[in-house]
Amino acid sequence: MIENPLLRHGLLVLAVMYLAWSLGSLEIDWGRTAQGADRAGRIFSRMFPPDFSRWSLLLKGVTESVEMALAASFIGMILAIPLGLCAASNIAPKPVYLVARGILVLTRTFHEVIIAILFVKIFGFGPLAGVLTLVVASISFIGKMLAEDIENMGNRQMEAIRATGASFPKVLIYGVMPQILPRYLGVSIYRLDANIRHSTVVGIVGAGGIGQTLSASFSRYDYDFSLAILLTIIGLVFLGEFFSNWVRGRLR
């Protein structure tokens, strides 16, 4: 696949050197790792059969996760509009554009869990921190998509509306909105699906939802309950994806 033999062998040598270096520099407790297979066997045997007897706790966690996802998607969807408009170079003035793009890059770079733990420190444990985390992630995601759609849309239609003497807000609702609305709704629904997936992890740092239940069960070595939670999460994610695909299919 790589024609030059020197380059091909060079890359191979480099790869081996990298492996040696990285494995050598990692602080790996080989003794502990060697017990892995053994431990995995024990953990898996304790996982089966999954324990659904505490279903009320499970249901509470799932409901909280779904509610967090719904609330965050709705708030994020609305707040993403001003951010998206500000981050579109063909609408926003240069300084506004740069600030908005900066916010987008900053919020996109940090993993949700990092944002979640900062919110937990500010607002304490519970779903509020989780909702805020998902709101930030949603604004960032939908806002970026919106900005790109606005930049890629036809400026001609906007120009025509401007030429009628319409004010900026009216240019937005007649010249911009009809062009981007279908995609915006689609992206928002997709984000709802993503929020359901992410709502299962923010709980691990104490930001509410099913993740908190999962984390607690793991720390208590309650592995049969953990598996029940994991299966529920997989089911939930599956449903979320199915719902999102169905709605987006209908929007088209």
Binding site: R156, Q157, G165, A166, P178, Q179
Partner: peptide, 20 residues
């Protein structure tokens, strides 16, 4: 904007809002 209200414009590519 007031002045533009008094000037109608017609474009080469029609520039209609396609989805309306």
């Amino acid at each position: 904007r007031k002045a533009r209200r008094r000037m109608g414009m017609i474009f080469q590519e029609y520039n209609l809002v396609e989805r309306l």
